[in-house]
Design a protein around this nucleic acid. Structure first.
Lengths: 120, 120
DNA sequence: TTGACACATTCCGATATAGGCATATGATGG
DNA sequence: CCATCATATGCCTATATCGGAATGTGTCAA
């Protein structure tokens, strides 16, 4: 099986950097597709596709305005994400104080060899 | 090109539901792979693979403990995610007050037909 | 109706993913 | 050194992307 469909939820939708950029732009107010595409340096079809995904997970809404279609942010779907991630807040604060972790970092790096095999 | 590698950043790493579950479990303290696999009803290789991704983006740390390898949460990488999503907080709060949006919802649903063609 | 403009969709190819299964690697105890 | 337990990796398949190019659909204006 491949990765969960990108259209499945907000978590997947915002995994895409370009979609995040679109959402950020939309904080400035509703905008037509071509505008977004131009501002983000992508083709119009690309923008349309990303917007479709965002619409399918409910992060944007569309409104027809003559020839254009104005996309508007609907951030409510981001709330659950914020809450989920927020559930870890106390843990990353913790990490700040604990030198522990830093020490273990070093110890491990030493154990596992000079140039860590952490990536790949 | 396919989607950005899952290993690229925290956003992608937490797009996977099972990885989110792993992170949640790890809030209870460090744990060996088999434990996690059992608790989440997945195979050991699956767990190892997910843990690898999480490690590559820095969301967990490993520590050898005899035969076992104890995985521990390192939530610092979630902070940027929390901040990014937090940048939309005022927008989902807004949506609460604005009846606007609700009205437009209805208007659109009416324009676009009785059973919305929003999905697919 | 026709043409122009804005946008959506489809088809294509390349890649990376998740899962299952088998197996390699690593450390421990005897 | 060998057997065993805990984990990591490799290989394979099916699928879901993302990007690009071409084309379809819808709306307006003359």
């Amino acid at each position: 099986m491949a990765r969960a469909a990108t259209t499945s939820d907000a978590f997947n939708a915002i995994a895409e950097p370009q979609r995040r950029e679109i959402l950020v732009l939309l904080r400035g107010g509703e905008r037509p597709v071509t505008d977004l595409a131009r501002d983000l340096g992508m083709t119009q079809p690309q923008a349309s596709k990303h917007l479709r995904v965002l619409r399918e997970v409910g992060l944007v809404q569309v409104r027809g305005a003559g020839k254009q279609r104005l996309y508007d942010l609907d951030a409510r779907g981001l709330r659950p994400v914020h809450e989920w991630v927020g559930g870890f807040e106390r843990f990353w604060s913790e990490s700040f104080d604990r030198l522990d972790e830093y020490v273990q970092d070093l110890k491990q790096a030493t154990q596992e060899g000079p140039h860590d095999g952490d990536d790949q």
